[in-house]
């Protein structure tokens, strides 16, 4: 699964692409990779990405994680999907200049183990 995440608030030129493994996502630990690039397509380095994953229904606590920069502009995190169903992953990105971005990724239909 790869795609561009949806901006929540701003129309900042920074694009965030994501990739989830395994595909389709299953209950358990999943690896999510993000690629941040500016308007010219250059990788955005040195960003801080806080990740929060919620289920679409009430009664589940969110899962929090931090994404680490593995390569320039390429960030990776591990999330534990505790239950099958629809998940929504929120990215709270802080760019090197301090500017903040919010992104939302819908991970629909996480399968049972």
């Amino acid at each position: 699964m790869a795609g561009c995440s949806r901006p929540v608030e701003s129309s900042d030129p920074v694009t965030v692409e994501h990739e989830i493994s395994p595909l389709p996502a299953r209950v358990g630990v999943a690896t999510i990779t993000f690629r941040l690039a500016d308007a010219a397509g250059k990788p955005v380095t040195g960003a801080r990405i806080a990740v929060e994953a919620d289920m679409s229904h009430a009664g589940m606590s969110p899962v929090f994680a931090e994404a680490k920069e593995e390569q320039p502009g390429r960030y990776q995190t591990h999330l534990k999907f505790q239950m099958a169903g629809d998940w929504i992953v929120f990215l709270h990105v802080t760019l090197p200049g301090g500017k903040k971005l919010e992104r939302q990724i819908e991970v629909s239909g996480v399968r049972p183990k």
Partner: peptide, 12 residues
């Protein structure tokens, strides 16, 4: 059965 809460049933 494993619980699965989805709001996108017909997506397969």
């Amino acid at each position: 059965q494993p619980m699965e809460m989805r709001a996108t049933m017909m997506s397969g």
